[in-house]
């Protein structure tokens, strides 16, 4: 099946390479992110909550 696909064009390897790349990135990001404690991100997660609504007329 693959041989038949690639006879159309060797360029059709591109989607497979890209999918493999995505898999590698995704796997790494998941492992790295969830290996850290949630509290590591508390400061970043709180950024929208900072009081910045002082008034200037």
């Amino acid at each position: 099946m693959y041989a038949q696909l690639f006879t159309q064009s060797p360029l059709l390897v591109l989607p497979l390479v890209a999918l493999a790349l995505f898999g590698a990135v995704f796997f790494t990001v998941v492992v790295r992110v969830f290996a850290r404690r949630a509290q590591t991100y508390d400061a970043a997660a709180s950024l929208p909550l900072e009081n910045d609504e002082a008034r200037h007329v």
Binding site: F22, F26, V29, A45
Partner: peptide
């Protein structure tokens, strides 16, 4: 989060959400 007055449920999930979604 502003309206709920609490941080996003999981910042770690947002990280994975972003990269997976845009790819």
């Amino acid at each position: 989060p502003k309206a709920a007055e609490r941080p996003v449920y999981s910042y770690r999930l947002s990280l994975i959400h972003f990269w997976a979604l845009i790819f």
